[in-house]
Design a protein around this nucleic acid. Structure first.
Lengths: 164, 164
DNA sequence: ACTGTATAGTTCCGCTTGCAACTACCTCGA
DNA sequence: TCGAGGTAGTTGCAAGCGGAACTATACAGT
C-alpha cells in the first residue's frame, strides 16, 4: 500500500469535510450553546440582574490592569463587532456601570473603565449567574472532561484569532 | 473531622458556584462559540450560500421521517423561540426551500416540509460550510477529544431539555 | 355536552445585531 | 513636512431576536 499517497488522500478529505465524529461534536457544540445560553439568560432576566453580555464586558475590564481596556481590545475579547460594542458600552455607561476615558497617548481612542457601581452590579449578578452556570453546564461534566474542554476551547480560540 | 457535614458543605457550594476549572471550561465555551460562529457565518456570506440558521432548520427536516416536522418540534430542535421560528420559516418558504402543510390530525398545527430546492440549497452550501467547520473547529481537536465533546454536549442538551 | 385549561402557531413590539460608510487621528516613507 | 494608507470609534440602516398577547383548536373532568 502506498502509504504516502494514502496519507495525502486522507489528509485532503479531512481538510475539506469534517469526519462524522467531529461533525457530531460540532453539532452538539452549537445546540448545547443555545440551550445553555437561553436558559442562563432567562434566569438572569427573572432575577432582574444584568444580562450575560454586560457581565462579560464588565469582567474583562475587572481582570485588566487598571480595570480598563481600550475599546478595540474589549471588542476583540468579547468577540463583538465594533459597532455592537460601541452601543453596548453606551448602554453600560448610561447605567453607570462603566465610564469612557480618553486615551492621552492616542487621541483617536478611548478606554472603557469599570466603575464601583459596575463592580457592584457584578456582585449582585454572580449568585444567580454562577448558579445558572452550574445547573445548565458545570453539573454535567466531570473534572477530566472540564480539563479537556478548557484545553480544546483555548486552542480553538487561539487558532481562530490567528487567522482572523 | 465531621465528614458528613463537610460533604454537605462541599456539596452545597458546588451547586451554587462553579469551581474554577469548570468555570474556565464555561468561559472557553462561550468565547469559542462566538469565534467559530462569526467566522463560519462570514464564510457562508462571502460564498453567497444560505446562513447557518437556515442550514440548521433544513437539516433537521432532512433527517426526519417524511422530511417534515411540526413547527413546535422544529423550534425545540433548533432551540429557537416559537416566534423566531415562525418568521424564519416564512423566509425559507418565500425562498422556496420548504413549504408549510396543514396537519390533518391536528387542525391547530402545520408541518414544515423540505422541498427539492431546499435540498439543493443544502448541497450548495455544504462544501463551504463543511470546510469552514473543519478550519475553525474540527482541525483543532483530536479524535478522543471529539468523542468527549460529543458525549458531554449530549448530556448537557438532555439535562437542559428535561428541566426546561 | 360543557366548561376550564393547555397547546400550536402567528403577530406585535421594543431591543440588539452586524455591515458599510464616515470622521478623526496616527504612522511611515519620500 | 506632507501625503498615502491604516486604525479607532461612531453612526445610519436593514434585519433578526425573544417575550407577551392573541386566535384557534384540542383535551380532560364533570
Amino acid at each position: 500500500m502506498d502509504e504516502e499517497l494514502e496519507k495525502r488522500k486522507t489528509g485532503r478529505a479531512w481538510r475539506r469535510r469534517p469526519d462524522p465524529l467531529r461533525l457530531a461534536a460540532y453539532r452538539g457544540f452549537i445546540t448545547a450553546y443555545a440551550e445553555v445560553v437561553t436558559r442562563i439568560e432567562r434566569d438572569l432576566a427573572a432575577a432582574e440582574v444584568i444580562p450575560v453580555v454586560w457581565y462579560d464586558v464588565l469582567i474583562r475590564l475587572y481582570e485588566s490592569p487598571g480595570r480598563r481596556l481600550r475599546m478595540h481590545e474589549l471588542a476583540r475579547e468579547v468577540v463583538m463587532a465594533r459597532s455592537t460594542l460601541t452601543r453596548t458600552v453606551d448602554r453600560l455607561e448610561a447605567a453607570g456601570l462603566l465610564r469612557r476615558e480618553p486615551d492621552p497617548e492616542d487621541r483617536r481612542g478611548a478606554y472603557a473603565v469599570l466603575t464601583e457601581e459596575g463592580l457592584e452590579a457584578m456582585r449582585e449578578a454572580w449568585p444567580v449567574y454562577g448558579r445558572s452556570i452550574v445547573e445548565s453546564f458545570a453539573l454535567h461534566i466531570s473534572e477530566d472532561e472540564a480539563r479537556t474542554l478548557a484545553d480544546v476551547f483555548q486552542r480553538i480560540i487561539a487558532a481562530n484569532r490567528e487567522r482572523g
